[in-house]
C-alpha cells in the first residue's frame, strides 16, 4: 500500500505557549479488514494501518492502536497542549511495514 497514501493534517501554524489546540488528521488507506472475500470467494488478506502516533518535540500527544474496524481513509481528531515552538510529528504504521510521516511546525505568537 506504499503508493497513493497521503496524509492530511489540520494543525495551527501558531499557538500561545500552553494553549490547547485541536488537531485533525486524515490519511488515504483502503483499510482492508481481512473479513471480505474476492469475486472467487477467496479471503482478501488484511492490510491496514495498525497504529497512529502524534508527538511534539519528542513528547507524546496520543498513541492509537488501530483495528480493522477503523473506516477506510482513517480520521482522528484530538487535542494537543503546545508547550512552546516546535515540530509536531504525525506517524502512521502500515501492516506491511511501511511508515508514513508528516511534520507541522508550530510557532509561538
Amino acid at each position: 500500500m506504499a503508493s497513493g497514501v497521503k496524509p492530511r493534517v489540520k494543525a495551527p501554524k501558531k499557538a500561545a505557549a500552553g494553549e490547547i489546540v485541536t488537531i485533525k488528521t486524515l490519511i488515504s488507506h483502503k483499510m482492508e479488514s481481512g473479513q471480505r472475500k474476492d469475486g472467487d470467494g477467496n479471503p482478501i488478506p488484511r492490510s491496514i494501518i495498525n497504529r497512529f502516533t502524534c508527538d511534539f518535540d519528542g513528547m507524546n500527544v496520543i498513541d492509537v492502536e488501530m483495528a480493522p474496524a477503523i473506516s477506510t481513509n482513517p480520521y482522528f481528531q484530538f487535542d494537543a497542549m503546545i508547550p512552546g515552538a516546535g515540530d509536531m510529528v504525525f506517524t502512521w504504521y502500515d501492516d506491511d511495514g511501511d511508515v508514513y510521516s508528516t511534520t507541522k511546525s508550530i510557532a509561538i505568537g
Binding site: 500527544v61 496520543i62 498513541d63 488501530m66 474496524a69 484530538f78 494537543a80
Partner: peptide, 10 residues
C-alpha cells in the same frame, strides 16, 4: 481502537 494519551495530550 485504543487511544493512549501522552504527556502533551490537551
Amino acid at each position: 481502537a485504543t487511544f493512549n494519551f501522552g504527556e502533551l495530550a490537551g
